[in-house]
């Protein structure tokens, strides 16, 4: 689903935000991307949905390679990948329902089914009763649910989330996490960036990838296999090619 192959992203004069990072997240996996502020989490997510390109290496996301997908074709990838931000990014002048319908309209869905589909998506995230409320009148947790419903509009196979609970209290955070697990249970891969290690610890079933100063320093799956079979490092570095 998501594959980073020796990815480096260097910013002119600022050094490497990502340094030779490789990992592979398979279909239906739930993974956390953790690390201190500035460790490169956002950069990694931007590379994955191709808002940005690697300086070296390659990203592959549901069949789209960063080497072969031109700027003009990025929209195809975007329809396979949902994206959720820390600050929700809803359109302020519109209702919850309109915000979701908007995503359906601009991706060229037939207008006849849009209303019903937007309503169904809001039901899926547990927000059907608030469909008519203005985005700005909703609580943070509710706004994030609208954002998730919007991200689901294209029925993506991958959900990317950048600190989605960063602005939420414990209760709302729990609700959003439950929703992510529900979506994951339906077969969606989830990759969520967070610096909240306590939150990560509460979800032991999820895979954990840790970045530190742009380097991948921990992968719970690798750690598990290393413990059981003591695999050598060489395999990991050649597996990408």
């Amino acid at each position: 689903m998501i594959k980073l192959i020796n990815v480096t992203r260097e910013f002119q004069g600022k050094g490497k935000a990502l340094d030779d990072v490789s990992f592979h997240i398979k279909k239906g996996e739930f993974a956390f991307l953790t690390g201190h502020s500035g460790s490169g989490k956002t950069t990694a997510l931007r590379l994955i949905h191709m808002a940005d390109r690697p300086t070296e290496g390659e990203t592959r996301v549901s069949g789209f390679s960063s080497d072969r997908t031109s700027r003009r074709e990025v929209w195809k990838l975007r329809r396979r990948v949902g994206f959720v931000f820390q600050d929700f990014r809803l359109l302020p002048g519109r209702t919850a329902h309109e915000n979701v319908a908007f995503a359906l309209e601009v991706t060229g869905a037939r207008s006849a089914g849009i209303k019903a589909r937007a309503q169904r998506l809001l039901t899926q995230v547990g927000l059907a009763p608030k469909a008519g409320s203005m985005a700005t009148e909703l609580s943070g947790g509710e706004q994030q649910r609208v954002a998730i419903a919007r991200a689901l509009a294209n029925e993506p196979l991958v959900l990317l989330a950048d600190e989605p609970t960063g602005n939420l209290d414990d209760r709302a955070t729990r609700g959003i996490m439950e929703l992510f697990w529900e979506l994951n249970a339906l077969g969606m891969s989830v990759l969520m960036a967070t610096h909240d290690l306590e939150l990560v610890r509460k979800h032991p079933r999820a895979r954990v990838l840790e970045l530190d100063q742009g380097k991948l320093v921990y992968d719970s799956m690798k750690a598990a296999t290393a413990e059981s079979a003591t695999t050598d490092e060489a395999e990991a570095s050649t597996a990408g090619g």
């Binding site: 195809k76 975007r78 990014r89 995503a103 601009v106 991706t107």
Partner: peptide
């Protein structure tokens, strides 16, 4: 947002 959810540039 349009770009993010997969609208085409021309659209």
């Amino acid at each position: 947002i349009m770009k993010l959810v997969g609208a085409r540039d021309g659209f």
